[in-house]
Simulated assay, not measured.
Amino acid sequence: MKDGSAFLNDNAQRIVDGMIGDAERLRVAVSRGPLGECLIDAGANAVGGVEAGLRMAEAAMGGLGGVSAFMDRGSEKWPFTIEVRSSQPVLACLASQYAGWNLSGQDYFAMGSGPARALARVEPLFEALSYRDTASSAVLILETAQPPPRAIVEKVGKATGLAPEKLTFLYAPTQSLAGGVQIVSRSLEVALHKTNDLKFPLENIVDGVGVAPIPAPHPDFLTAMGRTNDAIIYGGSVQLFVKGSAKAARKLAEQLPSRASRDYGQPFAEIFKRFKGDFYAIDPLLFSPAEVIVTAIETGDTFRAGGRDLKMLERSLG
Rank of each mutant, 00 (worst) to 15 (best):
V84I: 11
V84K: 06
R85A: 15
R85H: 15
R85F: 10
S86K: 11
S86H: 09
S86G: 10
S87G: 14
S87W: 12
Q88P: 03
Q88R: 12
V90S: 01
V90D: 00
V90Y: 00
L91T: 11
L91F: 08
L91S: 10
A92R: 00
C93N: 09
C93R: 04
L94K: 02
L94E: 02
A95D: 01
A95W: 06
A95T: 03
S96T: 05
S96A: 15
Q97S: 07
Q97M: 09
Y98E: 12
A99G: 14
A99V: 10
G100M: 13
L103A: 07
L103M: 03
L103D: 04
S104H: 14
S104L: 04
S104E: 14
G105D: 09
Q106G: 11
Q106V: 14
Q106M: 12
Q106E: 15
D107C: 13
D107N: 15
D107K: 14
D107G: 07
F109M: 10
A110P: 02
M111V: 08
M111D: 12
G112K: 04
S113M: 13
P115F: 03
A116W: 10
A116C: 13
A116S: 11
A116G: 08
A118T: 06
A120F: 08
R121V: 07
R121K: 12
V122D: 10
V122H: 06
E123A: 14
E123H: 14
E123C: 02
E123W: 07
P124R: 01
P124L: 00
P124G: 02
L125F: 00
L125G: 01
L125I: 03
F126I: 11
E127L: 01
E127K: 05
E127T: 04
E127P: 04
A128Q: 14
L129T: 03
L129F: 05
L129I: 12
S130C: 13
S130R: 14
S130M: 12
Y131P: 07
Y131W: 11
Y131T: 06
Y131F: 15
D133P: 02
D133N: 01
T134R: 14
T134D: 06
T134P: 02
T134N: 14
A135W: 14
A135L: 13
S136K: 11
S136I: 02
S136F: 03
S136M: 03
S137V: 02
S137H: 09
S137N: 08
S137A: 12
A138P: 02
V139E: 11
L140E: 07
L140D: 10
I141Y: 09
I141K: 08
L142F: 15
L142P: 15
E143H: 06
A145M: 05
A145N: 13
A145F: 05
A145I: 08
Q146T: 12
Q146S: 05
P147H: 13
P147D: 08
